[in-house]
Each structure stands twice: as structure tokens, then as C-alpha cells.
Amino acid sequence: MPRPFASRPDSVPGLDLDSFKHQIADIITEFFTTKTGPVLDVLMGAVAGGKLFRPVLCVVGWHAAWGPRSDEAALRLGASLELFHAYLLIHDDVFDNADTRRGRPALHRHLESRHPGAGTALAIAAGDVLACWHQELVSTAPLSPGQNFRVGPALDRMRREVVQGQYRELLLTQQGPAEDLSQVLAIARAKSGNYSVTWPLVIGATAATTDSAPANALRHFGTPLGEAFQLRDDLLGVFGDQAVTGKPVGDDLREGKPTALLALAWRQADSVQRRTLRAHVGRSDASEAEIVECQQIITDLGVPGRVEAMINGRYEQAMDALDQAPVTAPARTTLRHLAAQLAYRDT
């Protein structure tokens, strides 16, 4: 079946995303040159290799809302989001007891090899430094008092929401198999979807103009797209290609993460399948053969197809919202292509 975005051609030129990425990367590099201390090389490595799509979405949100000609403020806000993202990844890898990130040892593993017995504590502290630097980049962005007044609450809500989402996910993981799909999706929105897609767009648009219409419209676009993004993440976490994703396939199963994929599987499995899933899911020492057995059960239940259909539906919902959004033509074209990349990515 062809992907839904294949039938939505655009004739209006989009925004120059490569230019945004280069400028954002330059801001981060320049920012690091102002820092010193033993944590610097560690954090530079933690930030390196990111796709920068959250910062880019922030700048696109600025342009979507007819922002001022100079987008320096949006670029700096976007750069700050990349530091916030890196901070979350460091802590997330600690919580998940992950071994790798982006094809390299996770930071707590790397630090443990250099400082035996202290890797986890050092990684948490390093993440906290990045959280502080994220705020420093925000506070040094060339924003007017009015822009700061508008952007501050949006940033506060984003940070509060994602950390609370992480807390709720950890609690749910401890409780065993999560079969409540609505609860799992709510956590996914808070922990990943909104901060990855919706909030960067809203923050950029909110900084650009006092008119709330573009930000509200981008929220309606970003929320279902963020859900599609996370649902894709669920599929990649169980069935992705490790050479592409940079993380061992099956880690979500070993961690027992409350994902939509697993919630649907738990709900549909018979007693024998449940017994097998319960024996292996949530076990950090599950073997490759046991993970393959779980993958086969999930496949036999038709769950990947159901999740794919959920992604398609949310993608279409986002596209319908974008069709009605009061945004600039170049931004609309760009958001169409970004939406396809986020919903149908392989990494």
C-alpha cells in the first residue's frame, strides 16, 4: 500500500533546512567554546551526532508564523532545545540501563569505563549540566521582553510535561504489562511526541508573533504527528535495523517499556502467548532467541499492521490540520515533507 503522503505533491518552494541545521550547529559549537572544565569533552560527545530536527522545527515554526526577517532568536532557541534533548537522552539511557546511543556506548557506560563505580552518577550530573546550559542559551537569545513573556510559559510547560511523562513511564514499567492503550499513548505524548514535534513548533511561532492563531494551528498539526512519531519509535524499537537506529533491536522488550505495540499485544495474546511474553518482556538478560520469539508473537497477532494504521491515521489528521493552518506557504510545504520524514523514518 503506498504511503499516504505520496499523493500530496507541493509546488511551492520550502524553507532551507540545511541552512538552519548549519547555523544551529554553529551556535552550539560556539557556545561550547565558551565553556571549560572536565565535563566539556564528555558533553560535546553527547550532543554530537544529533539530527537537529527539534531545533529545525522551532525555526520552521518561527517562519510559519511570519516571524521577523532575522531568525537569530529562533535559531538560538532551537539550539537550546538540542541541549535539552541531549540532557533527556542521557537520563533516559540511565533509566533504561541502555548500553548504546547513536551506535556508541551510552554516556553512563562510557563514563563507567573511565571511572569505575561512578558512571551512573557522573552521567546524571553531566545531564544536569546540559539542562543548565539549555536555559543559558534561552536566556541569551535576542528576544524582546514581550517575546520572553510569551515564550517562557511554553518552555516551562514543555519541560514540566516531558519530565512528568518520564516519571509516569517509569512507574508504569514497574507495575508490569500495560494494557491500557489510552494511558500508554498519553505518556508517549507527554514524554516524546509533544516535546519532539509540537512544542518546538509552538515555541518558534510564539516567539515570532503576538497572534496566537499560528501557534494554535501548529499545535493541532503537531499533536497527531508527534503521536505518529512515537508510534514509529515503538516499531523501530522492536523491529528496526540496529545498523540504522544505532540501538540494539529488542531493547524496548528487554526494558518492558509501556509502548502501544506492547499494549496491543498484551490485549490480544492468548494464554500461551501471554505466558511467553511475561517470561521474556522486562528481562534485561533476555537472549536473542527469546527476543525473536516475542517478535514473532507480536507479528502473528498482527500488531505491527495495526500500529502502522494508527500512524497513517495520525499522519492524515496532521495533514488535514496543516491544510487549514494560517501559516506561510514555504513553511506549509516544508512541514509536509518533514511530517513524512518523521512518521515514516527508519531511524
Score class of each variant (00 low, 15 high):
residue 62 W to R: 09
residue 63 H to S: 14
residue 63 H to Q: 15
residue 64 A to T: 09
residue 64 A to G: 05
residue 64 A to P: 03
residue 65 A to V: 03
residue 66 W to H: 15
residue 68 P to Y: 12
residue 68 P to L: 10
residue 69 R to P: 00
residue 69 R to Y: 01
residue 70 S to C: 11
residue 71 D to N: 12
residue 71 D to E: 15
residue 71 D to G: 05
residue 72 E to I: 00
residue 72 E to H: 14
residue 72 E to C: 01
residue 74 A to Q: 11
residue 74 A to H: 10
residue 76 R to C: 06
residue 76 R to F: 03
residue 76 R to V: 11
residue 76 R to Y: 03
residue 78 G to P: 03
residue 79 A to R: 08
residue 79 A to K: 06
residue 79 A to H: 03
residue 82 E to F: 03
residue 83 L to W: 04
residue 83 L to K: 01
residue 84 F to I: 04
residue 88 L to S: 15
residue 88 L to A: 15
residue 88 L to W: 10
residue 90 I to H: 11
residue 90 I to S: 08
residue 90 I to W: 05
residue 93 D to W: 09
residue 93 D to L: 13
residue 94 V to C: 13
residue 95 F to K: 00
residue 95 F to D: 14
residue 96 D to T: 08
residue 97 N to S: 13
residue 98 A to Y: 01
residue 99 D to W: 10
residue 100 T to H: 10
residue 101 R to I: 12
residue 102 R to A: 05
residue 103 G to I: 10
residue 103 G to F: 04
residue 103 G to Y: 03
residue 104 R to G: 00
residue 104 R to W: 05
residue 105 P to K: 09
residue 106 A to I: 04
residue 106 A to Q: 12
residue 106 A to K: 13
residue 107 L to I: 12
residue 108 H to T: 01
residue 110 H to K: 14
residue 112 E to G: 11
residue 112 E to F: 11
residue 116 P to T: 06
residue 116 P to L: 09
residue 118 A to T: 02
residue 119 G to W: 06
residue 121 A to C: 02
residue 123 A to K: 13
residue 123 A to T: 00
residue 124 I to M: 14
residue 125 A to D: 02
residue 126 A to Y: 11
residue 127 G to Y: 05
residue 127 G to R: 13
residue 129 V to F: 07
residue 132 C to W: 02
residue 132 C to H: 08
residue 132 C to Y: 03
residue 133 W to G: 00
residue 133 W to P: 00
residue 133 W to C: 01
residue 135 Q to C: 10
residue 137 L to Y: 03
residue 137 L to T: 03
residue 139 S to H: 13
residue 140 T to W: 01
residue 140 T to N: 04
residue 140 T to L: 03
residue 141 A to F: 03
residue 142 P to G: 11
residue 142 P to D: 11
residue 142 P to S: 11
residue 143 L to W: 12
residue 144 S to R: 13
residue 146 G to L: 07
residue 146 G to F: 00
residue 146 G to Y: 01
residue 147 Q to I: 01
residue 147 Q to D: 07
residue 149 F to L: 12
residue 150 R to W: 06
residue 151 V to Q: 02
residue 154 A to W: 07
residue 154 A to C: 08
residue 157 R to P: 00
residue 159 R to Y: 04
residue 160 R to W: 06
residue 161 E to M: 15
residue 161 E to G: 11
residue 162 V to H: 04
residue 163 V to Y: 07
residue 166 Q to S: 12
residue 167 Y to H: 09
residue 168 R to H: 10
residue 168 R to M: 10
residue 169 E to C: 06
